[in-house]
Design a protein around this nucleic acid. Structure first.
Lengths: 205, 205
DNA sequence: TAGATTGTTAATCGATTAACAATC
DNA sequence: TAGATTGTTAATCGATTAACAATC
C-alpha cells in the first residue's frame, strides 16, 4: 500500500467518500457499490474504484464494498482513526461558531485550546475553555504538541500568527482569514473564505 | 470575449486573483506582473497569464497589468461588479457568524433575509434582521428575487431545504451542512465543511 | 534603444473515462 | 451457473508548463 506518491486530488476526495459512507452506516446500510457511492457524491463509479484501488483491494467482485470495512480503511489512510488535538486562534464570531461546532468529535478532531490577543476576549469562557493570551501561542502549543490549528483572525494578522503556529510545530492550518498564507512546503493549508466561494458561483448566474 | 466555454477550474481561480489584487490596491500598488501575482497566490506566472488571457488582453508587454483595470475586468467577468442579495437559512452559531461577517459587502454580497424553523429562533433579531419562519422560504425568496443562499442547517434537513430554495428560484447555494446535495445542473453548489477540510490535511501529518 | 513582460503555441504532464477480464 | 461488480489497462481528454515572438 502507498508505494507510489498519491496525487493530492485523490486525497482530497477521500474525506468526501468517508462522509458519505459514515452517513450510509448511520442509516444501517452494510454494503455499497462504486455505482451507488458515486451517485451520492456526484463522482463517476470508475473514478471511485480507481481512487480506492490506490490503497489496496477493499472490494469484492459481485458484491461491492463492505461499508464498515471501507470506513475503517479510509479512516486509517487519512489518519483520522484517532482524535487530533486542534488549536483555535481568534475568538470572534467565527471562532465561537467553530468552538461550539458539534461535528468535529466523531470525525477525528477536538479543539483543546483557544487564543485571542484582545484584552476583552482573554479570560472569557467559550464552552469548557478559557480564551488564552495569544502571546503564549508558541510555548503553549509546543507544550501540548498540537499539530493542527484553525485561524479565524483578521486578514492583517493572519500571516504573523501563522508563522508563530509553524514555529510552535503546527503542520496543518485551516485558514478562515481572506488572505493567502506563505508557508514552507512542510506545512499544509486549507482555505475557507465564504466570499470567495460565493464568487465561484456568480459567474454562472 | 467568452466565445468558448471556460473551464470551471479557471473560474475557480479568478476569485483568488481578485482577492490578492484587492489587497494590492488597498496597499496603494498600481501595477503588478503575472510573476508577482503568482508569488502572492502560489500559482505559476504562466498559468496566471493563460487564465487571464481567456477573457481578453488586459496586460501590457513590458509593464504588466494595471491593478485597477484588472480588478474591474475580473469583477465584471465574475459578475461581482454589483451587490447580490443573499438568503441565509439556519440561525445557529454558524448562521450567526455569517450574519455578522463583515467581509461580504465589499465583495459583492449582502444578506437580506434569515430563516429558521425553530420557535425559539423565529422573531429573534440578528443584527438588523429578524429571523423569519422557514415555512415562508419559497414565497419570500421568490418575492425578493433572491438567487443565492447560504445553508447552515443540520445535515438531516439540508436536502429538503435546498429543494425549497431551488423551487423559489435560487441558483447558487453555499452549503455548510456536512452532506452532498442533489441538485439539477442548472444550480451551483459550493461546500464548506471544516471537518472535511481538516481531513484533507491529516494524511500528510 | 534595451529591458521587461505579455499572449500564445507546442510539448509535456496528469487525470478521467471506457471497457473488460477476473472473480465473488 | 448466471449476474454483478471489482481492479486494471489502454485510450481519451484536459490542464500545466516551457519557450519565445511580439511589443510596450
Amino acid at each position: 500500500m502507498n508505494a507510489e506518491k498519491i496525487p493530492d486530488i485523490i486525497i482530497g476526495r477521500l474525506p468526501v467518500y468517508l462522509r458519505a459512507l459514515q452517513r450510509m452506516a448511520d442509516n444501517g446500510l452494510k454494503t455499497t457499490s462504486s455505482q451507488e457511492l458515486g451517485e451520492h457524491v456526484g463522482i463517476s463509479a470508475a473514478q471511485i474504484r480507481k481512487d480506492i484501488s490506490q490503497f489496496g483491494e477493499f472490494g469484492k467482485q459481485g458484491t461491492g464494498y463492505s461499508i464498515a470495512y471501507l470506513l475503517d480503511k479510509l479512516r486509517e489512510i487519512l489518519k483520522v482513526d484517532r482524535i487530533w488535538d486542534v488549536a483555535l486562534v481568534g475568538a470572534g464570531d467565527m471562532g465561537h461558531a467553530l468552538a461550539n461546532y458539534p461535528g468535529f468529535q466523531n470525525r477525528g478532531f477536538c479543539i483543546v485550546a483557544i487564543f485571542d490577543n484582545s484584552d476583552e476576549k482573554i479570560g472569557q469562557k467559550i464552552g469548557a475553555f478559557v480564551v488564552q493570551d495569544a502571546d503564549n501561542i508558541v510555548e503553549s502549543i509546543k507544550a501540548a504538541n498540537i499539530k493542527i490549528a484553525m485561524l479565524t483572525v483578521p486578514a492583517i494578522a493572519a500571516q504573523s500568527v501563522a508563522e508563530k503556529l509553524i514555529q510552535a510545530g503546527v503542520r496543518a492550518i485551516l485558514n478562515y482569514a481572506p488572505i493567502n498564507l506563505n508557508v514552507p512546503n512542510t506545512v499544509k493549508v486549507q482555505y475557507i473564505d465564504p466570499a470567495t466561494h460565493l464568487q465561484r458561483m456568480t459567474y454562472y448566474l
